[in-house]
Design a protein around this nucleic acid. Structure first.
Length: 296
DNA sequence: AAGCGATCCAACCGCTGTTGG
DNA sequence: ACCAACAGCGGTTGGATCGCT
């Protein structure tokens, strides 16, 4: 689209990182913090693309990275979250403390995707018999193909929260972020990993300053008759960015079914401006063994 | 031990959304 | 309103490793 490349690739190292490069990058980030990725290589003296530095840090060098095998609990959560979120690896990773989106994506592609595929209906064997990491693509394509039984993904398009409202009724988070929370920060508060079923996240919810019509042509609308779900009087603010938070969008979608549980959840947990983003309730929904069947 | 295919996973690529001038 | 820089995401690639013959 005419955009300049993120960096000139001439004279830059590529491929595996060396221990020295890791050391330099780690030292620089410890001294100066994350961010400014484009300028970071130059300032740090690394012959790497800024993007590459960011990836290396986030996926490998970050001190809170948990390495080693995925536990059974983690695996189960990944499966459930994938059913709900689809290939939203960053969102899934946000609920698995210490795990990176890349790691989860790789784990899915190499392990869980196969399992899911194996559990798929036997009549779909023609798709699975020659399974490999390429073969899962149709299954994970949330936009155009019908979801299989094994992976009834709610297709969504990521939307981002542009505004964050901190509830005045609740105590502020212990350490307010220096700037407006990113969508990931909102959606994936490390303080409230589902895995641990800990306390719900801080009372955060986000929205736009103006009611969103939600009637554009975005893919977000394509998988459900979203428009039908909007209040006709337009009186209620529907925050289409609640997904930032795909999960909320997903529940909107779920609410389109006749199931009152999800409708109630969506309305009370997301659409209500006074509500909070209650991840714990999301966890309960994930714990429900019934919800995958509710979407018909 | 060598050859070869399968698997894993770190890294790259292209694209999109956000932000600020 | 427009545009470019920036940050982040998900899909894909390819080298390293593993396991079998």
């Amino acid at each position: 689209m005419g955009r300049s490349p993120c960096c000139s690739k001439e004279g830059l190292n590529r491929g595996a990182w060396t221990a020295l490069e890791d050391k330099i990058l780690t030292a620089y980030i410890k001294a100066h913090g994350e961010g400014k990725w484009r300028n970071l290589p130059k300032r740090a003296g690394l012959k790497r693309c800024g993007k590459s530095c960011r990836l290396r840090w986030l996926n490998y060098l970050r001190p809170d990275i948990k390495r080693g095998n995925i536990s059974n609990d983690e695996e189960e959560l990944i499966v459930r979250l994938h059913k709900l979120l689809g290939n939203r690896w960053s969102l899934i990773a946000g609920r698995l403390p210490g795990r990176t989106d890349n790691e989860i994506k790789n784990y899915w592609n190499t392990t869980l995707g196969k399992k899911a595929n194996a559990q798929a209906s036997p009549q779909s064997k023609q798709n699975s018999q020659s399974f490999n990491k390429r073969a899962i693509e149709p299954m994970t394509n949330t936009q155009s193909s019908k979801p299989t039984l094994a992976t009834q993904v709610i297709p969504t398009k990521a939307t981002r929260c542009t505004k964050v409202f901190l509830s005045l009724q609740s105590p502020p988070p212990p350490t307010p972020p220096p700037k407006a929370l990113s969508s990931a920060a909102i959606d994936d508060p490390p303080q409230a990993p589902l895995l641990n079923h800990q306390q719900a996240s801080p009372n955060l919810h986000c929205g736009t300053e103006e009611p969103q019509a939600c009637d554009d042509d975005s893919d977000f609308l394509n998988f459900g008759h979203w428009n039908e779900f909007q209040p006709s009087d337009g009186g209620t603010l529907i925050d289409n960015d609640c997904d930032k938070n795909l999960s909320i969008g997903s529940y909107h979608s779920l609410a389109l079914s006749d199931d009152l549980m999800f409708k109630d959840w969506a309305l009370n947990r997301c659409l209500d401006d006074n509500s909070t983003l209650d991840l714990e309730s999301l966890a309960h929904l994930l714990d429900s063994e019934e919800w995958p069947e509710m979407r018909h």
